[in-house]
């Protein structure tokens, strides 16, 4: 029996009067890469923001290893072992690459452990080492994405949330990012991957959910969804 890591039960979230999530339920088992695909504005980012407490849900339950996250502030959720590389990267442009990574380990007191984790991040993205003392804002889009993922890894999360990591990147960089996602998962980190690039996301995940205007409309093994005619037409650009 696989162990459930994260579970959303009929979660609704809103921005003022706009209801962005309308009773979303999903489940992530330990060790999986689960992807959440859907069109622009479907509520993918809101799902991640609800999990991390940036947009606290209005109703429903969010359970992480059995613990209810709903009422917790973001920093406590991060302390439990969830980490997120947000949409648009949100790199601290006025801080150096090294400082960005240090902040990723803000809650980790063990300096030696952090050093080792930094080495792991550099092994994953050697490019970051070349930019070490540069301000985050001077990095290219691809490098910023590497930094965003690396920074999220610095807290040694058990669950990593990635919001459109391939957005706006050249094909070669998209390949690098997805290779890194596979590698991170192989080392034991569970991943929830939000993507508009459904093609790549379905290729690099175990299971998938399809979100449409705030509701889950389909779910299943990624392989299976990739072959589903409806998915192929709506999200993989086939007629």
């Amino acid at each position: 029996m696989p162990k459930t890591m994260l579970e959303l039960k009929i979660v609704s979230s809103s921005y003022g009067a706009i209801e962005a999530l309308k009773g979303v339920s999903l489940r992530i088992e330990q060790g999986e890469i689960v992807t959440l695909i859907g069109a622009n504005g479907a509520g993918k980012s809101t799902t991640l923001r609800s999990i991390t407490g940036l947009v606290p849900p209005v109703s429903g339950d969010i359970l992480f290893e059995g613990q209810r996250l709903n009422a917790l502030p973001t920093h406590k959720i991060v302390a439990l072992g969830i980490s997120m590389a947000p949409e648009g990267r949100a790199i601290f442009a006025n801080l150096t690459v090294a400082e960005n990574l240090e902040l990723g380990a803000y809650l980790q007191p063990d300096a030696a452990q952090n050093e080792r984790q930094m080495d792991r991040v550099i092994t994953l993205f050697p490019r970051l080492a070349e930019r070490w003392r540069q301000q985050g804002g001077t990095l290219s889009g691809g490098e910023q994405q590497m930094l965003a993922i690396g920074r999220a890894l610095m807290s040694r999360p058990r669950l990593l949330l990635l919001d459109e990591p391939s957005l706006g990147l050249a094909p070669l960089l998209v390949h690098t990012i997805f290779a890194a996602i596979d590698a991170i998962n192989k080392e034991g980190t569970t991943i929830l991957l939000v993507e508009q690039n459904a093609n790549a996301a379905l290729k690099h995940s175990h299971r998938a959910y399809v979100l449409e205007t705030g509701s889950i409309v389909m779910e299943g093994p990624s392989q299976q969804l990739a072959n589903d005619p409806r998915v192929r037409e709506a999200y993989l650009g086939e007629k």
Partner: peptide, 12 residues
């Protein structure tokens, strides 16, 4: 620089 990103670092 970015309040939400700071929260995601675990900063209170």
């Amino acid at each position: 620089f970015n309040l939400d990103a700071a929260r995601l670092m675990g900063i209170n």
